[in-house]
């Protein structure tokens, strides 16, 4: 599978630096994993092994913690993460549709997958981000987008991809057509009409 190419190369010195800064006792487990994930976007097995061998944290504790909290991921991710909020307000205002729209743009067809084949974007569902009045909401990287309809989400993604030199896979045959509504902004037009 293409996704294996997303595996990160772990810098042992860096992990050791975190251990020195954060600590090597049991309470350090969560912040250590957070440091690893901040760097690599997920928890590479190699980094986990380094932590287990160089701290007092046992493998069972570390993996127990890593699998318990929803923040942690054991699989590699795309270069950008799209967090789609599924808080109550977002659910009521159509968050599922944002997922459908984004998956369409990214050409992710397999229900079990969440990363585009070219390793550009990963879609992640998150519990409330806390901007309920802007529901439905998504984050691409650190940037928040609110009051979305499915088409708006696609447009924001397209814009982001253009700005960051990523290209959106799939739907090549539809591409020229799909680009067309962007200039006319159908979503916006509808908003004004309402």
């Amino acid at each position: 599978m293409e996704q294996s190419s997303l595996e990160a190369t772990v810098d042992k010195v860096l992990v050791q630096k975190w251990i020195a800064e954060i600590g090597s006792d049991a309470p350090a487990a969560v912040p250590l994993l957070q440091a690893v994930q901040n760097e690599y976007g997920y928890l590479p097995r190699e980094a986990m092994n380094i932590i287990v061998s160089e701290t007092d944290i046992s493998a069972s504790q570390l993996f127990g913690v890593a699998t318990f909290y929803s923040q942690f991921r054991l699989d590699p991710v795309g270069r950008f993460i799209i967090k789609v909020c599924h808080g109550t307000a977002c659910h009521v205002s159509g968050a599922d549709r944002i997922n459908t729209a984004l998956r369409q743009s990214l050409g992710i067809k397999d229900e079990k997958e969440d990363t585009a084949r070219n390793g550009s974007y990963t879609i992640e569902d998150v519990a409330c981000i806390g901007c309920c009045s802007l529901a439905p909401v998504m984050l691409i990287g650190d940037e928040t987008f609110g009051n979305l309809k499915g088409a708006d989400a696609q447009r924001s993604l397209k814009k982001h991809a253009r700005q960051h030199g990523e290209f959106l896979p799939g739907h090549e045959e539809k591409r020229s057509e799909a680009d067309a509504p962007e200039k006319k902004s159908p979503g916006k037009k509808k908003k004004e009409m309402l």
């Binding site: 309809k149 499915g150 088409a151 509808k190």
Partner: peptide, 12 residues
């Protein structure tokens, strides 16, 4: 049709 509702949203 998967009843996702995208068409409803975009229809002007």
């Amino acid at each position: 049709c998967i009843n996702c509702g995208m068409c409803v949203e975009v229809c002007n």
